[in-house]
Design a protein around this nucleic acid. Structure first.
Length: 575
RNA sequence: CGGGCUAUAGCGCAGUCUGGCUAGCGCGCUUGACUGGGGGUCAAGAGGUCGUGGGUUCAAAUCCCGCUAGCCCGACCA
């Protein structure tokens, strides 16, 4: 492609609305333009990268035995009602009514396609002999994000590869899951991304039923708990801590707790300032409703609760923070003054709470706290749990070394769904004994556009993008330094044509601009290999060839340029 | 959805507090000349509903009220 014939609107200055590097560079390099919050046009250069990622995804999906299809983005709202996800998605689901004749139809735009594909399979799978099968598509998804941000990293409309596996046994599910997991590793590796498969919250199925693929990036919205020593990685929702503690025996004769006035100080922050004590000496008492029953959850004051862990520890199917009335009933005090001493409900104690020697707790009385509370003595418990989010410095559950927290961008997710959708959509098969069972499903997503943004986010320098060859919009940029010089253009056109005939993606900057201008743009758009043809070089009979990451170009005799470039590209592709 | 910030030429901004001449600057764009290896120089130009609706005033980019859009922080995110 000749630059003069395509559309690459580069910008020297950073648009004010862009804060993160990927957003800034994608705008400046002419990859994307915003239409409105959360919706972007992929310009020719950006779309080429999107297509390259898609193609890699396609190849690896096919190789893993998945088959491609294409489903409607437009879906009847009823199928979301069948699975209960109309409510689960809530406002995130785009849905609207349209008139058709004298009827009114209610549609949704697909945020993902479990319903559509399960409905399809329900109609056509009847026997275990038809299983297993994995289907996928690459398609635009719609989610009414409450807050689109970070350019293309979080949008209301984005391209996603979604795959769904259907099987008749856990073995088939596990095989499909493993095939997808491995394919994902290959895909992200081929896209030049540093990624981390992390254990993710997997709901009632438990175990290793879900992994997220995260790209470590300081602007990532998600937190990954990672052990650099053994490689353990999990998202913050899921991450276990390697902590445990003994239940302290009651101490006879220890001083009784002292009640102190804490008027209008209901938060840890307020009370710790009032009493001049660190948050680590507080016990935070959170009242949850576990399957409707009040439960008090005790955490050290500076820690944050993890609802998934609380749910598992309580043995309940669902937990939520209690409302004010429930808190009043359980503690006898308004929100902010709950404490474990004398509380009238079940109590779950986090490991770290047992280690506090003299704690400050709510007094279960308005505007009052207790100090000098000794866990195990002034309130009893028989067991401690892991109830909070992991933090940097916690010990690793696998190897005991220190965990660290890294930010990450979620680019993929694999999930063992089980029978949630097949039950509600009545997707069943009969086994060899003619018994009917719900099909066992898995779902597997990759944010294609997010992969592109993640690469830009993590692969750049102060001059611009540094594309990995595999997903670069073009592999080679040919730069004739002076387009008014017939000799320069003759040679440049020759190289350009020959490289194209060799099947290489080439961009030629044939604009009548000064060399410095073109070099700056070349660095900005980050095409991996640069071939420069100028009057000085021609006098020596050479062209200059350099990788985007090289500081010095290599002088290559004109006759050898094509072969040299082909070799470099082939070599890079092998590595 | 709560809190904050912003809106003036394609991009980045000044002007707004303290109302007043023809609304400015840099980049980019057009034309010409010079120039030609890291965003060049000179000259001449084009380009503006000052986000939008209302109000105050002799007079509004500027003050007041409403609305809209965008961005940031938080909540949310199968």
């Amino acid at each position: 492609m000749r630059w003069s014939q395509t559309f690459i609107p580069t910008m020297k200055e950073v648009p004010a609305e862009a804060e993160v590097p990927s957003h800034q560079l994608m705008l400046r390099a002419g990859l994307i333009r915003q239409l409105m919050a959360g919706a972007y046009t992929y310009l020719p250069l950006g779309y080429r990268s999107v297509r390259k990622v898609s193609e890699i995804v396609r190849q690896e999906m096919d190789r893993a035995g998945a088959v491609e299809l294409f489903m409607p983005a437009l879906q009847p709202i009823e199928i979301f009602e069948r699975t209960g996800r109309r409510e689960a998605f809530g406002n995130v689901l785009f849905n609207f009514e349209v008139k058709r004749g004298d009827r009114k139809l209610h549609f949704a735009l697909g945020p993902t396609h479990e319903e559509v594909i399960t409905d399809l399979m329900a109609r056509h799978i009847s026997s275990y002999r038809q299983l297993p099968i994995t289907l996928y598509q690459i398609q635009t998804k719609f989610r009414n994000e409450e807050r689109p941000r970070f350019g293309v990293l979080r949008t209301s409309e984005f391209i996603m590869k979604d795959a769904y596996s259907f099987g008749s046994s856990l073995e088939q599910l596990n095989a499909a899951y493993d095939a997808m997991y491995n394919a994902y590793c290959k895909i992200f590796q081929r896209c030049g991304l540093k990624y981390l498969p992390v254990e993710a919250e997997s709901g009632p199925i438990g175990g290793d039923a879900s992994h997220e693929f995260m790209v470590p990036a300081s602007n990532g919205e998600d937190f990954v708990v990672h052990c650099p020593a053994c490689g353990y990685a999990a998202n913050q929702e899921r991450a276990e801590t390697g902590r445990s503690s003994k239940v302290p025996a009651p101490v006879d004769g220890s001083a009784a707790p002292v009640k102190v006035d804490t008027p209008n100080a209901g938060s840890i922050d307020q009370v710790s300032r009032l009493l001049k004590s660190a948050a680590t000496s507080f016990i935070k008492t959170l009242i949850y409703k576990a399957d409707g029953q009040p439960v008090a959850v005790l955490l050290r004051g500076d820690h944050t609760a993890n609802e998934g862990k609380i749910r598992r520890a309580s043995g309940a199917a669902s937990v939520e923070l209690a409302d004010e009335a429930t808190i009043l009933a359980a503690t006898g005090a308004p929100v902010g003054f709950a404490g474990p001493v004398g509380i009238k409900c079940r109590v779950l104690v986090d490991h770290d709470v047992a280690l506090i020697e003299k704690a400050i707790v709510g007094a279960n009385e308005k505007d009052a706290h207790l100090t000098g509370v000794v866990p195990g003595t002034h309130f009893q418990f028989s067991e401690t749990f892991d109830l909070r989010n992991a933090e940097a410095g916690d010990s690793c559950p696998r190897c005991g070394r220190n965990l660290e927290i890294v930010h990450g961008i979620e680019v993929g997710h694999v999930f063992k769904l089980g029978t949630k959708y097949s039950v509600s959509m009545e997707a069943k098969y009969v086994d060899a004994q003619e018994q009917s069972h719900p099909i066992i499903m898995g779902c597997y997503g990759i944010g294609v556009t997010r992969v592109v943004a993640s690469v830009v986010e993590t692969c750049h320098d102060e001059n611009g993008i540094i594309w990995p060859l595999s997903i670069a919009p073009y592999s080679v940029e040919v730069i004739p330094l002076n387009v008014t010089d017939p000799e320069v253009m003759k040679i440049s056109n020759g190289i350009y044509d020959e490289l194209i005939s060799s099947g290489i993606d080439v961009l030629m900057d044939d604009r009548d601009q000064r060399p410095g201008f073109k070099f700056k743009d070349a660095d900005l758009i980050g095409i991996p290999l640069r071939v420069t043809i100028g009057g000085k070089g021609l006098a020596e009979g050479i062209a200059e060839i350099k990788w985007r990451t090289d500081s010095e170009a290599k002088k290559v005799p004109l006759a050898d340029v094509i072969g040299y470039v082909k070799d470099l590209i082939a070599e890079k592709q092998m590595s």
